[in-house]
Every structure is written in structure tokens, then in C-alpha cells.
Design a protein around this nucleic acid. Structure first.
Lengths: 348, 348
DNA sequence: CTGTTAGCGCCTTCAT
DNA sequence: ATGAAGGCGCTAACAG
């Protein structure tokens, strides 16, 4: 590939001048500009991204950090990614998908620092190594979701109000008359799981019900969401624990619940009401029955995270950005009063 | 951030030695190694990615190039991305998501060359600018899908056999007795759309049916897939054109078809059979009726593309890699003999 | 085994 | 308005 030096020689000017023709950082005579452009075109010149970044100490690349150990993007991440991506490209930034391997984590103590200006950290856990790293390296970052309380004063994040929305849907079920509501939650180490659990418990409290231990299940890692939900439900059905409603962490889990119900001769919503935290909204009203869900607006989540990060990069002083993206509950066909109540109504 | 020079000074050795402690490229005495490691730890040193890449002329970054003008990753791209990502991280490569804006395409004549070693090009069109660019810059790349014939001898790609699988499902419908099969295809400029159309037409020919002009519809850009399919179907229903089966380019389109059928009082599969090219397999058997589909195995597509590219990067000479990922047809509940035939059978 | 030197390709002073 | 020289942080080639 031709370098700036080649272009300079061919155009009969200095390297600095060529540089300025393209950056526009200082005035160039028309004559010289023409010659440089011509030479550049002939040589098929393009500036070397690395060399420039090294010189200006800025890469115009931000990274999206996936959780260590998790192996895949979920549909939730998909729309989030779309939100991030749009915002980035609009502002001239490129996006690097960062996925560190668990195993190499130690070896990485002296690995090269990523070529990025900032980072968006996905699915942070209570005490997330990635956060400590970025703090140490003084790389600006924003979380999607929250981390442990002790960080909260210093860290930028974008999040839903998970506690409040969990509270809301639990109340909805309680007010329909459900008393035995299972919460198929995400992994115990995830902060989002704790937040939602708080909302769930608070709703029970407010309705003078006591929380039963086995009524929150945490996803375990070696099963897919769908498998986990399926097996959890099959266990529940066989145990004959009282149960009339389920809240699931994701669409995939709701799929598992629907499947388990189908395989066990249990009818949704007559025998079991279901509400899901969701992000793949297009499909849900094609379920039978259509699935009632919470729309987390993950694309907006991604967009806002990117915006916040880009703001951070622009700012001279370390500021902290916070943003709550509203979640909305969409009632469809998977919730109903519990069968016992329905019977009573029929009899009267 | 501390540099290699800082570490060298603190450890009382030369920069070159520090470099070699981390790269392991030449033997280092234990004494020196210890001192260097200690200094590095104290200074919180990490090598500068850019500087190293500039020196070694290699970035260990590959990019995934999204189609210009398309604004979002679809579920198809999601699993593809997962495949690519796994393969990359396993081999120590990072992934840059590249999404050039249409509008700036001209201005980009002299934009900096991307900091990548190679590229995977998504959704190539007949004569794709991105291909010309990469050829000119001599950056190795592999296509997912094919480009125009004239390129085919020199370019690496990974693809399904779209023509053959389209042929197969069209035959399936024809053999059920369908004669009026609509193909809701993807954009006319896409090569995949041409391939599939060929298969569709060949199936008609082989069954001694003549192709009718209006029976292939090409997605137009300003509508989402779902909207496009919906409107196309509504138009068809109102025109009273004979029609007993539909093939759609994607799940999203199938959703639009289901919706249009529902809104028009048309029953699937009794009045209309549907088969979809799909990649979001998890949801499809929860449709009513469950959707018959072609599984394109897009995760494998992504994995193989990444493998091919990494092989290319390793190879000294320019080689060409080709790979066909098999697509599989999964029959579920959305296909049936056309109503007219069913009636005859009932009557006899 | 280790130090020294010269790039990698660009941008940015400081001159003129 | 332009040229010359130094530096961004690292690796590589050459000495010893």
C-alpha cells in the first residue's frame, strides 16, 4: 500500500502538506491540493489507520464487551447491538466486539491494551473484573445494567428500572388473584436478577404474602435458557407445589414454559399464567396464546449507552452519566385469573 | 499509561529486552525476567496495541462488513455473528463490525484504510463496491453468499446451495398439488434472491408449469420484511389471483404472511401453505400452525466463513476457499394439499 | 543473553 | 502557504 511519503514525493511536496490536504487543518493552495489529490488517486492512497491513531492518541473505536464465559449473543443483545451500532456509525465511530475468554483471563495480565477509546460493558455482574480493568486503565466506559452498590456513585450506566417493572407485573398477577407465582430468574450472579427479585418480593409483601424459598429459580450455566425453564417447570409440575403463575427472565425461558405446559397437559392461561421479560417482540403475539410481556426496549438501551459513552469521550473532565430507559408491560393472552377463582365465579 | 520505555528504565534494561520478555521471542535470563515483570506490574504496564500492530504490520482484527444502507442486524445475522465470533476469539482475533454509510461512500475515497487483517462480507450484491475496494486494497476477504458470476473464479465464499434448496421446497409444494405458488423473495439486487429464483423456476419447469410474471415479489427497501410480506399478501388476496402456497425469504416475512392470512380470514394450511427460509428456529414450532421452514444453519455459515478467512490470512500465497453449507428442510404444520384437491378427495 | 538503532506511517510543532 | 524534524510506542535486525 502507498504511504503518505509516496504521495508526497509524487506530488513534489512534503509529507506534512499531504497530511494537511486530507485533514484540512491548515490552508492549502489550490495548485498543491490538485497535485496531491491526483497523486493520491494514482497511487490509490489511503491513510494508515493505525499510524494515525498512534499519532493522535485516539482510535475512534469503541468496544462492546460481552460477558466472559457466556458464549452467545441472545436476541436481547441483537436489538441492543443495533442500537449501539447506529449511534456509533452516525458519529464516526467503529465498533469492536470484545469477548474475552475465561481461561486466558490470568494470562491476560500483560496482554496488549485494547485499541479503543471507550467501552460499553454488557451484563455486568456484582463485582465485575472488566470494570476493575477499565478503571485501572482509565478507559472510559458505561455499563448496561448496574453493578454492585459500592460502585454506584462513580460509574456511568444505562438501565431499565428492573425492580419497579418486576414489582408492577407481580402486582398485576397478584391482583388477578394469583398467590403462587414462580419467578424463573436469570443467573444468581447477575445484578439484574437481584433487582427484579427485589421488586417481586416487595409486591408479595405489599399484598401481605410471605415469600417462599423455592419460588425463585436461578438459571444455571450449563443449560440454555429454554432448557432450564423447561426442566424447572417439569420439576415443579411433578412436585405438585401449588403454582398458578410464572414470570420468566426472557422469551427463551417462556418458550420452555410453554413447552413444559404442553407436554404436561397444562393449559395456558387457564391453568397457568405467564409473563416474560422480553426483547423479541415481533414473535410474541404469534404464540398460542399470545405471550404477555415486558418490553425492555433494548435497542433504546443500546442507543443511549452509546450516546452516553460518546458524550463521555467528548467531555474533558470525568463525568458520570446515568439513564433509565422505561420498560413497558404489554398485556396479551397469557394471563388470566387463577382457575380456582374462575370456578367460584362460574358457580355463583 | 506506562510505556515500554518506562518499564525498561525501571527494570534497568533496554526496551528490546522488555519486548522480548513479553513476546518470548528470544531467551531471557530469569533474573532479568523477574525484574521486568515486577516493574511492569508496578507500573501497570500493558503494551500499546496500535504501536505493536504498526510495527508488525498485522492487527489481529477482522471485520464483519454489513451491507451498506441496510440498517439492522436481523436474527439471521445474529446466529451468523455468533459463529464468526466464536471462531475469531478462539484464534486470538478480534472482530470489528463494519458498517459504512451510504451517503459518505464518495467522501470515503481517501478515508483511512480499516485497521484490519481481513474481512467477511455480508449480503454481497451483484456488483458490490465493497468487493472492489478490498480487491484494490489487497485485503483478504471472504463472502457469505455469492457475488456476480464474473467474480466467481477468483473469490472465496461460503454459501448455502440456495438454488438447490429452493428447487427442493418448490418441488415439495408442487408434489402436494400446488400450482400457484407465490415467492416472496428478498431484494432484487441480492444475489441470493436470483439463486433462489432459479431453483423455483426450475422446479416449475420440471413439472411442466410455466412461470407467471407476478409470482415472484422482490422486497423493497423502505419497508421492513414483515410489512412488505403483509402488504404483498393483502394485495394478492384482494386481486383474487389464484394462490395456494407461499415461499418466504425469512421468518419475518412469514410473520407478515400469517398476519395477512389472519386478517383476511384465510386459514393456514387449509387455504394457504407456507414455507420459509429461516434462521430463528427456536420460535417456529410455537406458531399456529407451526411453520415449515428451511434451516440455513447460519451459525455454521459464520463459523466456516471465519475459518476460511483465518486460513487465508495464514496462507502465504493467494488461495481461494469455497464452502457449501447444507440447508435442511424441516416439515412442520404449515403445508398441506391445496383445498381444491382435499375437496375432491373428500367427495370420492 | 542483552543493548542499540532504525524503522512502521502518520501528525505536529517550529521554522521559513 | 509550505518544509523539516521529532515523536507516538513498539518490534526487528544487527551487534556484541
Amino acid at each position: 500500500m502507498a504511504t503518505i511519503k509516496d504521495v508526497a514525493e509524487r506530488a513534489g511536496v512534503s509529507k506534512g502538506t499531504v497530511s494537511n490536504v486530507f485533514s484540512g487543518k491548515r490552508p492549502i493552495s489550490n495548485d498543491v491540493r490538485e497535485r496531491v489529490l491526483k497523486a493520491a488517486r494514482e497511487l490509490n492512497y489511503r491513510a494508515n489507520y493505525l499510524a494515525r491513531s498512534l499519532a493522535v492518541q485516539e482510535t475512534k473505536i469503541i468496544s462492546l464487551s460481552m460477558v466472559r464465559g457466556s458464549n452467545k449473543f441472545s436476541p436481547f443483545h441483537l436489538s441492543l447491538l443495533n442500537g449501539v451500532l447506529n449511534e456509533c456509525t452516525e458519529h464516526g465511530y467503529r465498533l469492536l466486539v470484545n469477548k474475552l475468554l475465561d481461561e486466558t483471563a490470568e494470562k491476560q495480565e500483560f496482554a496488549a491494551a485494547d485499541p479503543i477509546d471507550g467501552e460499553i460493558i454488557l451484563d455486568p455482574s456484582e463485582s465485575d473484573l472488566r470494570i476493575h480493568e477499565r478503571l485501572k486503565q482509565e478507559i472510559p466506559f458505561v455499563l448496561i445494567g448496574k453493578s454492585a452498590d459500592n460502585f454506584e456513585t462513580a460509574i456511568s450506566y444505562v438501565d431499565n428500572d428492573n425492580q419497579q417493572i418486576a414489582f408492577q407485573i407481580t402486582c398485576h398477577l397478584l391482583e388477578l388473584g394469583h398467590k403462587d407465582i414462580l419467578f424463573v430468574n436469570s443467573g444468581k450472579e447477575r445484578t439484574v436478577s437481584k433487582e427484579r427479585e427485589k421488586g417481586y418480593k416487595k409486591a408479595l409483601e405489599d399484598h401481605a404474602l410471605t415469600f417462599r424459598q423455592g419460588m425463585v429459580k436461578y438459571k444455571i450455566k450449563n443449560l440454555s435458557s429454554q432448557e432450564f425453564a423447561y426442566e424447572t417447570m417439569m420439576d415443579m409440575f411433578q412436585s405438585h407445589e401449588p403454582l398458578t403463575a410464572v414470570i420468566t427472565d426472557s422469551d427463551q425461558m417462556a418458550l420452555g414454559v410453554y413447552q413444559a405446559a404442553r407436554d404436561s397437559g397444562i393449559t395456558i392461561p387457564k391453568d397457568l399464567s405467564v409473563i416474560s421479560f422480553s426483547n423479541d417482540v415481533a414473535y410474541l403475539d404469534h404464540f398460542t396464546p399470545s405471550l404477555s410481556f415486558v418490553n425492555l426496549h433494548s435497542e433504546l438501551l443500546g442507543k443511549e449507552a452509546a450516546r452516553a459513552l460518546l458524550d463521555l469521550l467528548g467531555a474533558k473532565d470525568r463525568v458520570v452519566k446515568r439513564m433509565i430507559v422505561p420498560a413497558t408491560f404489554v398485556e396479551q393472552g397469557s394471563c388470566e385469573k387463577p382457575a380456582a377463582l374462575l370456578k367460584i365465579e362460574e358457580e355463583t
